[in-house]
Design a protein around this nucleic acid. Structure first.
Lengths: 153, 153
DNA sequence: CTAACTGCAAACCTTTTGCATTGAC
DNA sequence: GTCAATGCAAAAGGTTTGCAGTTAG
């Protein structure tokens, strides 16, 4: 469930840019999403936010996440339900999400986006489809777990 | 929301193969999934099943779908929540799901799997990741809607 | 015959909503 | 000052579960 940190250019700034009021609660949620060391579901965001400011209400967190999602600043992922039915929220770094979810250690890796160009060209020419948001999720076995397994056998 | 029909080699047979009891209710659910003209969420499966046999209970449908999901015979998709928060169930044709979801007409297209080979080779060599189940979802504008839009403007 | 499965109803968990109050701009 | 956002509590979904009765193998 751990994830690599992603470079990010100010969610708060973008929130302000689209006209959202920067309340204390929203600042907390935004910072949590920006600095998260793993993918967070709504409940986790709520718990962490509440730990910082006891008055933050669950409904506010849900409303904020929905707001951000509708504005396209954040995306909702399910990571193929590899570890439960929860939905996770992630700042939209671009319009592309690529996740490699290890079914063994539950680690989530986000590989380079290099191969995306090929794929895009292909979908556009072969299917006439113009992709806007793309999600690629693969469940499988990561390099580390493959080594562990072969060592064991 | 419409989808192309996919060739399929007997969900019931595979259910039997893994040792599931073929009850009347499960036969109905299996046939619904096999012949569905669109992606079905749990509630839709339930409603359709109930229409065929009034005694089918919602809990049974949920249990069956979960069972099939855990056995890997069926996959759960959210189609990027383009048309709601529902989760859809689809027979696993292989281990690969590619969906192009049109944000305009909500149509879901399933393109050829040709480009998957490149992607797979890449993830394996560059990330050392061995993919087992793959889901590629793209939200965007389909060819037809692009034409409609340009005609309008 | 027996373990697996079902129907039923209640519980559970997550998310949303109406309303009065608060606070950002 | 005004309108958006919040807290609260209640409702609304959607899904799961314990139990007693039924049925496929």
């Amino acid at each position: 469930m751990t994830r690599r940190a992603l470079p990010n250019d100010g969610l708060l700034t973008r929130m302000k840019a689209v006209g959202l009021r920067l309340t204390g609660q929203r600042k907390i949620v935004a910072e949590l999403l920006e600095t998260a060391d793993e993918h967070l579901d709504a409940e986790s965001v709520y718990k962490r936010a509440k730990a910082r400011d006891g008055t933050v209400h669950r409904a506010t967190v849900y409303r904020t996440l929905n707001r951000l999602k509708k504005l396209g600043l954040v995306d909702e992922l399910d990571l193929m339900h590899v570890s439960g039915e929860r939905h996770y929220y992630e700042i939209r770094p671009s319009t592309l999400h690529i996740h490699l979810v290890c079914t063994s250690c539950k680690r989530v890796d986000e590989p380079s986006e290099a191969f995306w160009d090929d794929l895009k060209r292909r979908v556009e020419s072969e299917n006439g489809f113009r992709p806007e948001v793309v999600r690629i999720e693969m469940a499988g076995v990561c390099a580390a777990c493959q080594r562990t397994r072969s060592r064991r056998s």
